[in-house]
Amino acid sequence: GTREFLTFEIPLSDSGSAGLGVSVKGNRSKENHADLGIFVKSIIHGGAACEDGRLRINDQLIAVNGESLLGKTNQDAMETLRKSMSTEGNKRGMIQLIVARRVAKR
């Protein structure tokens, strides 16, 4: 199927300490265990992403705060996400995400 790319700027709560309120998982190929990217696993009720309302489970994370995750191993991508959340996120009070979402075949 085709995918659409979406950019979200998700405001963090004033303290920003609760983060996005999203858990993400790494997916890989069953055949050769090649890393296939980081995907949204759950959106925590009442969290920043839930309040914002646009992120969906199984969205693939493509970039965070302007830093691409493509071409990285799942582990490196998660490290990039973690680092970006702690420094960049709190400074700007929001997190910019680019995600890829499968478009249902019409």
Binding site: G19, L20, G21, V22, S23, V24, K25, G26, N27, R28, S29, K30, E31, H33, D35, L36, K41, I44, N74, Q75, M78, L81, R82, M85, I95
Partner: peptide, 12 residues
């Protein structure tokens, strides 16, 4: 689909 989770999950 030939996709599976690699077992790592982090909360952001």
């Amino acid at each position: 689909r030939n996709l599976e989770e690699d077992g790592t999950v982090i909360t952001l």
